[in-house]
Amino acid sequence: MNTIKIIDNKVISNGYNDNIYINDYSKSSYLTIDKKSVFIIVASNNDISLVMDCEYNNFEQDIIILIDDNTKLNLFEYKTGLNVKGNITYVLQTNAKLIINKFCDINNVEENIKILLNGTNSSVEYFFSTICNSNKVYNMYINHNNKKTNSNIMVRGVSLKKAILNFNINSDVAESGSESRVNQDSRVIVLDDSTSVISPKLFIYDNSIEARHSAVIGKFNSADLFYLKSRGVSEENAFRLLIKGFLLGVITVPHVKNYEILKNISSYWE
């Protein structure tokens, strides 16, 4: 497994090869991963921003990201490709903070996402958007393994044509995770003949936990469509605007990826 260390904004690559590209932008490190298993260690007293670009085609990928004590990582994940089985694990140490914004456009994907809140006071904010016209399954496991840990999982999906979009989100707070906070907020818009299943599960083993969840599958609000159409916007364009708004409303997209993602969403109508 390739190992990449990002220490105090400097990327130190051990096992760097043609399949991993690291470019320095002014404010964020930019990581392109198109093969192999990768282990990334992030350690810093300052905030770190990382853009991770993964292009998959017909293969499995394993990524592990370890966020060291007192490190805050802002990660933007952009995933594209076809026929993928992916595993990604985030390990958070004491006082580690992870903010993930993620946009995924992979046809036929099964992704297992594990977030291990191992350190006291560690926290994750996970903002995820996806659009699909094929089958996608996302299995998420958020394990609160220590006290005063926080997780906020916000997921948005749009399914089109005959797509099947499934989210299985499991938040597990062990007895050792006292005084932790858990939130899940999942919403999917189903269009055409597509279907979706959201399985929000909370496994709580301590009474001091504050936990919430919501899961909504439905269509766009007719009042929203009426509002846009009342300004002369055609039904087709109204849907485009609403889909774009729904998907991008929850994630913060870095400037460097903005155009690509807009083009990606638009490609569903070309």
Binding site: Y227, G232, L247
Partner: peptide, 17 residues
Amino acid sequence: PIEIDGVTNSEFLRVAL
């Protein structure tokens, strides 16, 4: 008037115009 998250006023109005 409703709120639509993620769609900017300028984008919406430009499409409308």
